[in-house]
């Protein structure tokens, strides 16, 4: 004799296929022969399926940034006070490693200086080597450099493989922003958001960083926040965003790029406007098309004269029956705001 309550308690286990074979068989047999439990089982299955509609939520990138920022020497200090014995390089080994790093950095600069045009040469005297100091014995990466943007060429040659890109916001003291990354050593380039070198670097980061959507998405967020307070952002930034809009395979990134372009109207070039029109015409994702048409509508509202191709695209979108209704409405709105050329 089996009580229905006992059988029902097994139902969640049946759903997760966690019952042992004997109990599973008994529970199924009971369900088949008990009209009340059949209904119960059906309701459980339905509930279980409904619960599946709650999607996974992406962890905001800032959480990782905050976490990594917290792994500081102070944290290591706290750990050293526990019973764990930290691994520390011997003094001799540390100095050897640092000497080797200096030789490598020096040799690389010498080699680079002879290999590429003089305008790309880093000026070693202005570089501040800040982390090759015994004060940070727990860092795994012992070599870090901070370079002022003025000391690097705005021209980035080749396609250096940059990794672990981090951003730091403008300091209230001097309005300097920072972009850090690893090449052979960890480098931080600091400068004003308007410095050409910084703009070039950000463009490179936007177009190349990691080729992974989360980090590019993070880069877009940061660029947007940084340039929100800059009166006239450099058009190279919007061109970089336009390239992301054209080429990134992740729809979420393309949405962000289009949205950010919308917030940088003053720096739009013909190229960026073309990218928005292309997105509106051809992007397979309706949300990207919506962001693109919103950007164009905003552009039209601002009084900028749109060229015939844009007007034509907007007209076709406004009347395209199988287009997303919001895209159509926004296209019509843009058309109504157009100033004659």
């Amino acid at each position: 004799m089996f009580d229905c309550d006992a059988m029902r308690e097994n139902m969640p286990l049946l759903l997760t296929e966690s019952l042992d074979p004997v109990q599973r068989e008994q529970t199924h047999q009971h369900i088949e022969t008990c009209p009340i439990c059949v209904a119960e089982w059906s309701a459980y299955k339905e509930t279980w399926l409904i619960l599946d509609k709650l999607p996974e939520v992406a962890v905001p990138p800032r959480v990782k940034q905050r976490f990594l920022a917290e792994i500081s020497p102070a944290m290591a200090q706290a750990m050293a006070q526990t019973n764990v014995v930290p691994f520390r390089r011997g003094r001799t080994m540390r100095w050897l490693a640092q000497a080797a790093a200096v030789v490598i950095v020096g040799s690389s600069a010498f080699y680079a200086g002879h290999r590429i045009a003089p305008r790309t040469q880093l000026i070693p005297t202005q570089a501040q080597v800040t982390a090759i100091q015994p004060a940070t014995p727990y860092y795994s990466i012992a070599e870090s450099r901070v370079l002022p943007a003025a000391s690097i060429s705005p021209q980035i040659e080749g396609r250096p493989d940059i990794q672990n890109v981090q951003f730091s916001d403008a300091s209230p003291l001097n309005q300097q922003i920072g972009v850090s990354f690893d090449i052979t050593s960890h480098v931080t380039v600091t400068g004003r958001p308007t410095d050409k070198s910084m703009v070039r670097l950000l463009r490179y980061v936007l177009e190349n960083e990691d080729r992974e959507s989360p980090s590019r998405s993070r880069a877009i967020d940061w660029v947007r926040a940084t340039y929100a307070n800059v009166g006239n952002p450099d058009p190279e930034i919007t061109e970089a965003l336009a390239n992301v809009l054209r080429n990134d395979q992740h729809q979420g990134v393309r949405i962000k790029a289009a949205d950010t372009l919308q917030s940088m109207q003053s720096a739009m070039t013909d190229g960026t406007r073309d990218a928005l029109v292309e997105a509106l015409k051809n992007d397979p994702n309706p949300a990207v098309r919506l962001k693109a048409v919103e950007a164009l509508a905003k552009l039209a509202r601002s009084g900028v004269a749109l060229d015939p191709d844009m007007v034509d695209t907007l007209r076709r979108k406004a009347s395209q029956n199988d287009e997303n209704v919001y895209v159509r409405v926004k296209a019509a709105e843009a058309l109504s705001s157009i100033q004659p050329r």
Partner: peptide, 30 residues
């Protein structure tokens, strides 16, 4: 096991509007 079961009871009522639960049957099993 009990927590999951109780949770499912509450969720079932909330999500499917099915407020039966608690009915008893004593079907004999072999």
């Amino acid at each position: 096991k009990t927590r999951v079961f109780r949770a499912m009871e509450v969720l079932r009522k909330a999500l499917t509007g099915d407020s039966r639960g608690g009915d008893r049957c004593l079907t004999a099993m072999p």
